[in-house]
Amino acid sequence: MTAIILERVVIERGPLRLEGDLRLGPGLHAVTGRVGSGKSTLALALAGGIRPAAGTVRLEGIGRRLWVGHDPVVHLTGGTVAAEVASWRVEPDSLLSSLGLADRARDDPFHLSLGMQKRLVLGCALAARADLLVLDEPFASLDLPARARLERALTARDGTTVVMTHADRHLPPGTTRWRIEGGRVRPEGP
């Protein structure tokens, strides 16, 4: 069982202030909210990139936490596509063929289109098998078949998965939904 528990947590970043009292257990969670509501900030806080101003974050059965931001470029550190995969400690050959990038293994990842960079980074993050995976706007820049593949991969994953998205129609049935409104993270009604 994996869970991340936010107890009376307050997150502050610039003018933004977020409050949350929630438990994210195993399975897929989606956090929606209008532009500017604080989805990216919550994503970073869940992954440990921002310390809350108040309250406690408790982890149960979670060792490795992984965050993927909306801009794939911040994750790229490899000189080639294959080296990028290896930097996530993932075996390149099988992953690249499943991503449709086998013929670009020796290319510079900075020369891929935005959509292709996004596929690459998400593929690596999924293959890295983190106990908690936090994805900020993972569906943006992906084409429809790639979105459907991502949906399936998210459902099939063990551990806790949190997706920040405005595109809630891509979410598979059984997703636990949360919404940020007026600076609070709440469960979304049935």
Binding site: L44, G49, W67, G69, S87, R89
Partner: peptide, 15 residues
């Protein structure tokens, strides 16, 4: 800002 995100992203790769 970039550096903050890049550093966090690289830290997670665990090298």
């Amino acid at each position: 800002d970039d550096l903050e995100r890049i550093r966090f992203a690289a830290e997670q790769k665990g090298s």
